[in-house]
Design a protein around this nucleic acid. Sequence first.
DNA 1: CCGAGAGGTGAACGGTCGTGCTTTTATCTA
DNA 2: TAGATAAAAGCACGACCGTTCACCTCTCGG
Lengths: 188, 188
Amino acid sequence: MLDEAARVVSTSGLSGLTIGLLADRMQLSKSGLFSHFRSKEQLQVAVVERAAELFAERVVRPALQAPRGEPRLRELFDRKLRWDNGDLALPGGCFFASVSAELDDAPPSPVRDRVVSAERDYADLLANVFRTGISEGHFRADADPEQYAFDIRGVLLSYHHASRLLADPKAEDRARTAFEALVRAART
Amino acid sequence: MLDEAARVVSTSGLSGLTIGLLADRMQLSKSGLFSHFRSKEQLQVAVVERAAELFAERVVRPALQAPRGEPRLRELFDRKLRWDNGDLALPGGCFFASVSAELDDAPPSPVRDRVVSAERDYADLLANVFRTGISEGHFRADADPEQYAFDIRGVLLSYHHASRLLADPKAEDRARTAFEALVRAART
DNA sequence: CCGAGAGGTGAACGGTCGTGCTTTTATCTA
DNA sequence: TAGATAAAAGCACGACCGTTCACCTCTCGG
């Protein structure tokens, strides 16, 4: 049920996730569905948390199986591409890309806070995996892991933008090219 | 009036632009405002076009005054930062960053089409300015202008994300650092 | 066998949405 | 000054929103 909600959000945004619509898709009455969550805000929080779980299951945990340093980073990047627009994706692409843009200027709220913390977790993860790549000797010792996380985030956002909005068939090639350039620049 | 509408969209998204809300802000009755546009869709189209005008006025045209090649590219980048989050910005940051994410999975529509074409125009502009930089001898002859446009877009999207959603005080530094790295890599 | 509790239904509420209509008000020309 | 034209107001509509509440129907432990 939260998976269906996450699918809706990924395509129509949080504001497109309506109690009536979700009830229909679940073949449930509006009030029947409503009684599971006690408010719309709690539904939104629950779906954000479910999306974070899905991301951990499909992207993060499998990638952490790869050897430390550069291979792990490559796996993380590759899976993130598939999460945005491939076999690991929700129908509307990256859940957090939609929701982040929707909430970036919203006042603080439980929903926004969870999204922010999920995004921060991901940025920290990228930086840490990169940092491990430094101590493994894959990357230059003076490289800045947070800067690297910022750069990777940019490649992924640009990929989402190019493939989803502009329907650019070269989007994936461009993303991989950009990633390789970043890795090359970080090499020792 | 369309300027006010653009301000609303930049913070609350297209779905937050409501006839009643805009009427209030304009101190107009709902029907009074409605009669200016003949439907909500036409209001949306008009506000997208107004935003594209604003972007051309504040970012593109002034940047084109700078000398061809690298200086023009720098000016374009700098002004885009200010458009996202500075003295040239709407209250919710980049208008198109909000709207793009909102419409990326929507079915084709007049509104979506205008957004896509504005985004394509901007990508083409970036690629062309870069191309001129090649013929001016500022950048390597074998550099790929479209790839460069993709990379720059990534830096700008990551900047918007970091500064707006994550409130990262280092966002601007990171964006400038990333931009300098791209320019350096493209140098002859 | 009974009663409690969980989970689902259907109707209703106040509110806001986009959109039509009719009427008033203001502006400008003949 | 009278009359045409345009802009805004006021009101009502049907649809959908989140939310509440009274009722129904199961299942299961005592």
